[in-house]
Design a binder for these strands. Structure first.
Length: 814
RNA sequence: GCGGAGUUGCUGGAGUGGUCAAACAGGAUGGACUCAAAAUCCAUUAGCUUAGUGCUUACACAGGUUCGAAUCCUGUACUCCGCACCA
């Protein structure tokens, strides 16, 4: 029998909506719970399986907490600014606004079909000027505090597009849209956020978070704190601070390497070397570090020399493709004897190799181990670890260096030469220079009429670009760069608490009630991007005095990826894509939700398997049939024990997102119901547990009991430990054992070609009720008689019953 | 290179010192029901052996700790993921 999922799901979707079942308000004295899924980018393709999975996890948890009596905030929104909308505009000619609106409408329809219990009244779109207005407001605050600043940065530039390209738009060093056009590297002034000011706090704050250990490690790694020494080298009478973790090898420096992307590179290059350097730079394809990786280390001489502050030697400076421009000062001191990279470089260009730490064989390779210093002037003989301190101390005294802390984390470049992002509230005036707009000018809305396809579309909105300077009323131009879309997701969680506030970012009382987020759910790919920015913004807003906490999300769960049947990522080109909406049509949303969390532990990657969907569907069909035909009766003690045991275990499993295990236990409980009567309470407790996974079918069955409210708003069952009795499990074991034994004997006997058709079991009198004749008989498919050994009228021709012992009944077959 | 996760039976996947030849699901095989099929139910699904027993081999591989290991430790192999020339 198939249950009518289409009718049921439509019915309850409408009821929830009509009665605003999941709309939330602050309630004084009621404990809150903020459950948040990372909001999606609304693509034109609609929901994919990854969405279906992660949002189901969020919904299950929100429903669980709601039933547990928390006042649950479970909102949804759309991260609707971003590149794909703009690319669609370029490709198909739709305006990003229209593309976005269509996509969102489609998303909403599908999300409602999945039964996700969002508070739709709080829905947000980042493309809404009432939302991005506050991006601009935060930008202005950053500017005031000196955390937003401009700096030259290398960018990928396509001559034909006349625009900057994102790293992912660079393919093999060429433009994604012009296969024959090589990318050039240009240095443009860009806006940055000084996230590095918070590096230390971002690092230490991790300790108190209940996040998966691996995501914390990833962040620590990304922030990358390291201790070292900054040494001042002199180049053309200018001091260049050079960062090193090996000050002990300062006497072994034989050349320097400056980054090919360094903004001051051409200050160093001599006239004679200029053409060589330029030729070299052309070889470097793009700023993308991905493109740089794997390249052989190469470089050319710049013609300049640096002076080693201790030895006063003249050291040649090379430009190299392997030095990062924005780590340290963009130039490194090379010690080929004790660093493998430097060693390779020195060998390649036949540069001097000077050994300063004793212990290796530098004719073969660099020696990076420990040892005593040699060739190091007055530091000779020192153990190199000791020398690190001594040399640093000495440099400090001479004002030639100091101890420093370095982070891998870099300042956040937020400028994008794109249309579909938040406009930066800045104008450039010929007289006044950079002028920040004021709060009452906000929002600076995106102009609708722009041309796509050539350069930054915003440049084509002349009316919008050309403005008067707010200070001197002279001609001025707006900033045409927009902000990275990660700014939107950095604070959206706060806006959900007060989404329609026109006066302030949010009402502090509302944020005070709901925040921080108690449970955040999203993909592991966001750990080093979004989740760092998200924490940074929170700390910044706290320093601004508008937040009282400093971590946005206390608990975080990363879900695995649902791959295709073949184990590969679902992708159109591989043809292994399964659309959630198709599954809903075929099996219903309840089935899909159940299947998604049955595959495996939700934090692991899994492969799609339609069999699991079918099995989930079968289960729900059975549940539906059982409950629609159910005649209520008394729940026996055994089922009651099982019920309470299940409640206890399922509650624990759900709390830890072990839904696969919880579902197994729910299904096992249901097995116990078969062919039995249960009372209304037992039935309802079962349905409540199932309701977090399968809300539609359980609402329907719940209402069949005459309930008028929603099961979604009822209460989570409580385990009564007193009713759990392990005796029942022992009984089951006893039954399994006797069935096994009988079957084993039959097997042996039949091998001898003997036929047996009746089974007699002899048990000690007080065990008689453990062995149910009809149940055993069904399982072994033969008629069964159970006798107590004390029974005088028992049938026992060979006197088997004399062997009977406790827990070991005797068996006779004939 | 650095960091992380993992390797369980035909398959997916539970299980983190004894109660484990190992949950649950799927598949396969046999049986019940049926004119037949589907659904449902029952059983089997490492091997040998046996009137319900006993034994062997098993949780990537090799060692170790322990009275006792899938589970703890060490090493090896493989897979996956993240960062990646961070000086």
């Amino acid at each position: 029998m198939k249950y009518p999922h289409k009718v049921i799901e439509k019915k309850w979707q409408k009821k929830w909506e009509d009665e605003k079942a999941f709309v939330t308000k602050e309630v004084k004295g009621k404990k809150k719970f903020y459950c948040l899924d990372m909001f999606p980018y609304p693509s034109g393709e609609g929901l994919h399986m990854g969405h279906a999975f992660t949002f189901s996890l969020g919904d299950i948890f929100a429903r669980f907490k709601r039933l547990q009596g928390f006042n649950v905030l479970y909102p949804i929104g759309y991260d609707s600014l971003g590149l794909p909308a703009e690319n669609a505009a370029i490709k198909v000619g739709t305006h990003p606004l229209k593309y976005t609106e269509n996509s969102i409408a489609n998303f909403i329809k599908q999300q409602k079909a999945m039964g996700w219990s969002y508070d739709w009244a709080r829905m947000l779109k980042t493309s809404d000027s009432e939302f991005y207005k506050w991006d601009q407001w935060i930008f202005l605050q950053m500017l005031k505090k000196g955390l937003a600043y401009r700096k030259k940065a290398p960018v990928n530039w396509c001559k034909k597009c006349k625009t900057v390209l994102a790293n992912e738009q660079v393919v093999n060093g060429k433009c994604w849209r012009h296969e024959n056009t090589r990318i050039e590297i240009k240095h443009l002034e860009q806006w940055y956020f000084r996230i590095t000011d918070y590096a230390d706090e971002l690092l230490s704050g991790l300790d108190k978070l209940d996040w998966p250990e691996r995501s914390k490690k990833l962040q620590r790694n990304w922030i990358g704190k390291s201790y070292g020494t900054e040494i001042l080298f002199e180049v053309n009478n200018e001091k260049w601070p050079i960062f090193t973790t090996r000050p002990d090898t300062i006497y072994g420096v034989t050349f320097m390497v400056v980054s090919a992307q360094h903004s001051k590179l051409f200050n160093l290059v001599t006239e004679k070397q200029k053409s060589m350097v330029e030729k070299f730079l052309e070889k470097i394809k793009s700023v993308s570090e991905k493109e740089i990786q794997g390249l052989e280390k190469e470089g050319v001489f710049t013609g300049a020399y640096a002076i080693n502050p201790l030895t006063k030697e003249q050291i040649p400076i090379y430009v190299g493709n392997f030095v990062l421009a924005d780590y340290g000062s963009g130039m490194v001191m090379a010690v080929p004897a004790h660093d493998q990279r430097d060693y390779d470089f020195a060998k390649k260009y036949k540069l001097k190799i000077k050994e300063v730490v004793f212990g290796g064989n530098i004719s073969r390779s660099a020696y990076i181990g420990e040892g005593r210093l040699i060739n190091s002037g007055k530091f000779d003989g020192l153990q190199n670890q000791k020398a690190k301190e001594k040399i640093t101390e000495y440099l400090k005294k001479q004002k030639l260096g100091r101890k420093v802390v370095q982070f891998k984390l870099r300042d956040w470049l937020i400028s994008r030469q794109r249309y579909w992002g938040t406009p930066i509230p800045i104008v450039y005036c010929a007289k006044c220079g950079i002028v920040a707009l004021t709060e009452k000018d906000l929002p600076i809305k995106l102009p609708e009429k722009v041309k796509f396809g050539k350069g930054n579309p915003l440049e084509t909105a002349k009316m919008w670009v050309n403005v008067k300077c707010p200070k001197c009323r002279c001609k001025a131009r707006r900033e045409t760069d927009t902000m990275d879309t990660f700014v939107n997701s950095s604070w959206y969680y706060l806006r959900y608490t007060d989404p329609k506030n026109e006066k302030v970012l949010f009402d502090p009382r509302k944020v005070g009630y709901w925040c921080p987020v108690d449970q955040y759910i999203g993909g592991p790919e966001h750990v080093t991007g979004h989740l760092i920015y998200f924490r940074f913004y929170t700390k910044f807003l706290r320093d601004l005095g508008i937040l009282k906490f400093d971590e946005p999300a206390l608990r975080y769960f990363t879900q695995g990826i649902v791959h295709g049947k073949d184990g590969d990522k679902m992708s159109k080109s591989k043809g292994n894509v399964v659309e959630p909406f198709d599954m809903i049509k075929k099996y219903g949303a309840d089935t899909l939700r159940l299947a998604l969390v049955s595959f495996a532990n939700p934090d692991k990657d899994t492969n799609w398997d339609e069999k699991i969907v079918e099995s989930s569907y079968n289960f729900l069909n059975n549940v539906y049939e059982y409950f629609t035909k159910l005649k209520l009766g008394k729940t026996d003690a055994k089922i009651e024990s099982k019920l309470h045991q299940t409640i206890q275990q399922v509650t624990q499993d759900v709390e830890q997102f072990k839904h696969n295990l919880a579902i197994i236990k729910i299904r096992q409980l249901f097995q116990n119901f078969y062919d039995k009567r249960i009372d209304k309470e037992t039935a309802q407790e079962f349905l409540k547990m199932l309701s977090i996974y399968c809300p539609f079918i359980t609402e329907e069955l719940w209402s069949n009991f005459g309930n008028t409210g929603f099961i979604s708003l009822s209460d989570w069952p409580k385990a009564n430990v007193k009713k759990i009795n392990i005796r029942f499990e022992k009984e089951d074991l006893a039954k399994d054992k006797i069935v096994n034994d009988i079957l084993n004997i039959i097997k042996i006997v039949e091998a001898r070609k003997e036929k047996k058709s009746k089974v007699y079991i002899y048990v000690i009198p007080n065990e008689k009720n453990l062995y149910d004749e009809s149940e055993i008989s069904i399982r072994i498919q033969k008629p069964v008689k159970v006798f107590a050994v004390s029974d005088k009228n028992k049938y026992d021709p060979t006197n088997k019953s004399k062997n009977t012992k406790p827990n070991r009944p005797s068996i006779y077959l004939e």
